[in-house]
Design a protein around this nucleic acid. Structure first.
Lengths: 193, 193
DNA sequence: CCCTTGTAAACTATTATAGTGTTTTAGTTC
DNA sequence: GAACTAAAACACTATAATAGTTTACAAGGG
């Protein structure tokens, strides 16, 4: 049952987010979701595998959502703006994925740390690069190195998503403002004058 | 050195608030405040003693602050209002003490749980009771059972402090509003018409 | 020099935890 | 209701982590 698997992962996500890898125990997980430890080990090889599966799931979910918000748009510029908007929004909504991208060590065991944190990073960067290439081909964007610019852009709105940490939500409009500044900045950097 | 002691307790407070008693280790504490484990055990008998000392310290701090905001006021009614205001404010400011009063089990080992959670409870209730008695003697308050009413009052504004959990701070004025309703309610319950 | 004060690190006894069997229970099909 | 199935509950082990202790050592202060 994929249902059970996801229920387990939901609980793992919560625990991991609160306590980190080391302080999260299998017994707690099994109590949390009222599933016997034995069953958990039927779904996942071991603790690390379980956490890895969670990472993969979360990354896919993020990608799907970001994609689905970009689906019908044709113009590469509009596409890019939408991508930034959705990403910033989603990263703000889901603290966990933000920490994952931030490579927050508490979430991982030492082993996992290097292996999986770049999972979405690369994928999103590729998408951005593709959009930029499209814009270049249509003569709308300047002739920039799309990989490098995509990387820079990604790191930028990643940084903007992190900003949330520690702040309160009275800042909601300021968030909006920052996002717009970011979009403006990126657009000006690549669009032909 | 009382300074060192407090530095240790500050770190314990932070860890305890984040991870709870069981998930907080002595090694972490010693690393956190760059004090050797040996030294920690010179200041505190054991882990439970350490946490108990933190509780006592936090309770005293709370009492001092609540007292100091009430110092000069003469009129028992004004005194009571000020007491409510300060308490609600302070409990909101300091999540830790709120959890302590709430008897949040994660903070304690099983042993401590019952022994210390009523520390401030009783003290604050006594203060409230004293104020009510004062008001009665001055003929300003109705002839209520001061202990019981004090208990009820305390439980009430405790509940109002807890409300914070999970909400965002856009609610700041609503907090103010609730506090006023609470004051109004309590006052009407005890003041002579 | 000695004495204090504290750190760093090694060490032990105890406990907790990951991971595996084994037994019970609950639900389902025949 | 018997026979079967899947998962929960429980018990168990080997290993790792942790509370608490001890030892060796370093820095300062008289």
């Amino acid at each position: 049952m994929d249902d059970v698997r996801n229920r387990i992962l939901d609980n793992v996500k919560e625990r991991l987010d609160r306590f980190g890898f080391k302080k999260t125990t299998m017994d707690e997980i099994s109590k949390d979701c009222k599933i016997s430890k034995k069953t958990i080990y039927e779904h996942f090889k071991d603790k690390e595998d379980m956490v890895t599966c969670l990472f993969v799931r979360e990354c896919h979910k993020a990608m799907e959502i970001i994609f689905s918000h970009m689906g019908e748009i044709e113009d590469p510029l509009e596409k890019l703006i939408q991508l930034i908007r959705t990403s910033v929004w989603y990263f703000r909504e889901d603290i966990f994925i933000t920490r994952l991208l931030k490579n927050d060590e508490a979430l991982y065991s030492a082993f996992l740390s290097r292996k999986y944190h770049a999972l979405i990073d690369q994928e999103i960067i590729s998408i951005i690069a593709a959009i930029i290439r499209e814009g270049k081909e249509q003569g709308k964007f300047r002739d920039v190195d799309e990989r490098v610019v995509a990387y820079a852009g990604f790191k930028l709105f990643q940084a903007f998503s992190y900003m949330r940490t520690g702040e309160f939500d009275e800042e909601k409009d300021r968030q909006e403002y920052y996002t717009n500044v970011l979009i403006d900045f990126v657009i000006n950097a690549i669009v032909k004058k």
